[in-house]
Nucleic acid binder design. Structure first.
Length: 482
RNA sequence: CGGGGCGUAGCGCAGCCUGGUCAGCGCGCCUGCCUUGGGAGCAGGAGGUCGGUAGUUCAAAUCUACUCGCCCCGACCA
């Protein structure tokens, strides 16, 4: 093997073939596997546990901001989908249709929801009567289906899990406020829990959600220099209210169309975690979303079940009592070295080793997944030290990802600079944009980069459009996207 | 949906060009002994309709056609 620390085998090197590495890690760490159904994956328990952890954080933040969960039907009658013109046009190409049921051909075919605006708005039209009913702040945890041509584990699958928030407000201002509030929650999830820095901002018209007035997104920069849209928040204005007749009577006794938002994030976030933090040894999970935060590996010797294991068990109890998601690997069929590699591949942030030597000294050995740095910690106060190190690892991972993002964010003052950047290591490219669709399309055609977000407030110094040289209306972030 | 690549045991692969002891290797798995501080050792053993279908042939993992799936690069999307 090439390097001293090259302990995990069977995984393609991240630096050699990023895509192959990604698939290897997802499958070897048992996050997910391919299913017999093309383009659809099975999320295995370990991967689902990661999803549950980040989902629980989102759910908590939703509830703290007054949102409630509800559930709407999987099927949407075609006529409902067609009520909002841009919406149906945007989604039609990737809708899966149900055309028969119970052995009979249906009179009207049913869409398997690609998103639920249509079915939810039809209900909102019934429920919203008065200004006193507003705001209506609902969220749904569900699966959706989009018939994608090309799929990738977690990043783009035919079926995926997500949450979709759908809110109704009395005024445009409240709707915009809600749209930005939820964007902020996505940012918090990404930065505080997933340890992934994001850029937030508004989408250009060509990139916005079908049927929205304004779309905002959080964008992450992946190690291969491509951007990943990791959460979107839409201000729907009155588009759907008018299409579905969602009206309320105001304080002034006037019948008004309501203002709406919708916002979503998906299991794609798990893929973002893998790509951002993983290394040649496999997965690296930020402690706050790691199903196992600390794994105890007993160093067995002689009748270890009567000696070492008892101490290991006691430490496990202590860690659990302190609120650490800890696991004791008491399998006797594997050597310690094998277990080290195994748990590293699964991304467990902290390893706790206990062996005969440690028992003599009343200590344990802590090893960080990030840099394999060892520390020898007395049993007394071990749980506190584990928690401290887990927080430190959380911070290190964020700092590392932020440093990468910053090192790969470049300014382009000319078209040549933009083209050079995209031809090289790619990354986030900041530049001026006149706001014209033609200029946006030209950049995409020449470099395959698209506007990820419009920067607000605009950083200074981007006065000219990178494509046409005309006066810039915005400073934008270009990148090639997933 | 275009261009390219790959499907052989749970995983990773060789064999294919030039059809004929090619059903093989490493890891893993099972049994036993012995071990255990970075994927231990020895001995024995189980496991595969060579992605699928149809052809060519005395004979197909190998040649041909079709088909399914996965990966990569583009166009479309969370």
């Amino acid at each position: 093997m090439a390097a001293d620390n090259d302990f995990v085998k069977e995984i393609t090197k991240k630096s050699v073939d990023f895509s192959a590495w990604y698939v290897d890690v997802v499958r070897k760490a048992e996050l997910a596997d391919y299913s017999p159904m093309k383009g659809m994956m099975v999320i295995r328990p370990y991967g689902y546990e990661v999803w549950e952890l980040l989902r629980d954080q989102l759910d908590r933040m939703f509830k703290e901001t007054g949102h409630r969960n509800a559930y709407f039907p999987l099927f949407i009658p075609e006529s409902f989908l067609q009520k909002e013109a841009e919406h149906v046009e945007g989604f039609a190409p990737e809708v899966a249709w149900v055309t028969s049921g119970g052995g009979e051909v249906l009179e009207e075919r049913l869409a398997v929801r690609p998103t639920s605006e249509a079915i939810i708005c039809s209900m909102y039209a019934k429920w919203v009567k008065s200004w006193r009913d507003l705001p209506l702040l609902y969220n749904q945890w569900a699966n959706v289906v989009r018939w994608e041509k090309v799929t990738r584990l977690f990043l783009r699958t035919t079926e995926f899990l997500w949450q979709e928030g759908h809110t109704v407000h009395a005024t445009a201002e409240e709707a915009e406020e809600e749209t930005l509030r939820m964007l902020g929650i996505y940012r918090r999830l990404a930065e505080e829990y997933l340890a992934i820095p994001v850029v937030t901002g508004r989408k250009s018209d060509s990139e916005k959600f079908a049927g929205a007035v304004r779309t905002y997104a959080i964008e992450m920069l992946m190690p291969d220099g491509k951007a990943l849209q990791a959460g979107t928040s839409h201000n729907l204005g009155q588009n759907f209210a008018k299409a579905f007749n969602i009206r309320y009577e105001s304080r002034e006794q006037k019948l008004e169309y309501a203002w709406q938002t919708s916002w979503g994030s998906t299991t794609r976030l798990v893929g973002a975690l893998v790509m951002t933090h993983g290394d040649d040894s496999g997965l690296v999970l930020p402690p706050r979303v790691a199903p196992v935060q600390a794994v105890i590996v007993p160093i067995s010797a002689g009748n270890w079940r009567e000696t070492v294991l008892l101490h290991a068990q006691r430490l496990l109890d202590e860690l659990k009592a302190a609120g650490v998601r800890a696991h004791l690997d008491d399998r006797d069929t594997f050597t310690p070295g094998w277990k080290y590699a195994d748990w590293e591949m699964r991304g467990v942030p902290l390893r706790v080793e206990v062996g005969p030597k440690d028992i003599d000294k009343h200590q344990a050995v802590l090893v960080s997944r990030v840099d394999r740095k060892k520390s020898f910690v007395p049993w007394d106060g071990l749980a506190a030290e584990v928690k401290r190190q887990l927080e430190a690892i959380q911070g290190e991972l964020y700092a590392r990802a932020l440093a990468f993002r910053d090192a790969n964010t470049h300014d382009a003052r000319s078209y040549a600079e933009l083209r050079d950047a995209m031809a090289g290591g790619r990354g986030f490219i900041r530049c001026g944009w006149c706001g014209g669709r033609d200029c946006e399309a030209k950049v995409k055609a020449d470099t395959s980069a698209t506007i990820r977000v419009i920067l607000d407030p605009p950083p200074p110094g981007f006065d000219a459009c990178v494509a046409c040289g005309g006066k810039a209306a915005h400073a934008v972030l270009f990148a090639k996207s997933y």
